[in-house]
Computed example of a mutant assay.
Amino acid sequence: MSLPIDPASPNAVSPLSAAGDRHFDGLADKFAASLYGGSRGELRLALLDRLLPEMLALHGQPLLDVGGGLGQLAAWFAARDHAVTLMEPSAEMLARARLALADAPVTFHQAPLQALPEVAPGPWPLIACHAVLEWLADPRAALATLADRLAPGGQLSLMVFNRDALRFSNVVKGNLEKALADRLEGKGLRRRLTPISPLTHAQVTAWSAECGLEIRGVAGIRIFHDYLRRPAESDADREALLALERRYCRVDPHWRLGRYLLYTLVRPESPPSADREPRP
Rank of each mutant, 00 (worst) to 15 (best):
A79V: 01
R256Q: 15
G69D: 05
R229Q: 13
A206H: 04
T264M: 09
A219P: 12
P231Q: 13
R267K: 15
V204M: 10
V204R: 03
A144E: 14
P53T: 07
N11T: 08
A181M: 13
R276Y: 06
G188H: 08
G60T: 09
P15F: 08
E239H: 09
A78E: 11
A144Y: 04
P139T: 11
L86H: 04
D138P: 04
D25P: 04
A243G: 03
A128Y: 00
R276D: 12
L189N: 01
S39L: 11
S169M: 14
S208W: 02
S17E: 00
T145S: 13
A12E: 02
S234R: 14
H201P: 00
P4Q: 00
V84Y: 04
D25Q: 06
A137M: 00
G220L: 10
A151Q: 13
L261V: 09
V132R: 02
A274N: 03
V251L: 12
P15C: 05
G71I: 06
G71E: 04
R279Q: 14
I127A: 00
I221Y: 04
R140Y: 12
R267M: 08
L86R: 06
P53F: 05
N170Q: 12
T200P: 02
G220F: 10
E185A: 15
L73M: 10
E214P: 00
R167D: 12
I5H: 10
R22M: 08
R190F: 04
I223L: 15
P117Q: 02
L156I: 08
R238C: 08
H225G: 07
K30M: 02
D148Q: 15
G71H: 07
L242A: 13
P280S: 04
E245K: 01
L47G: 03
A243P: 07
L101I: 03
T145F: 00
Q72T: 02
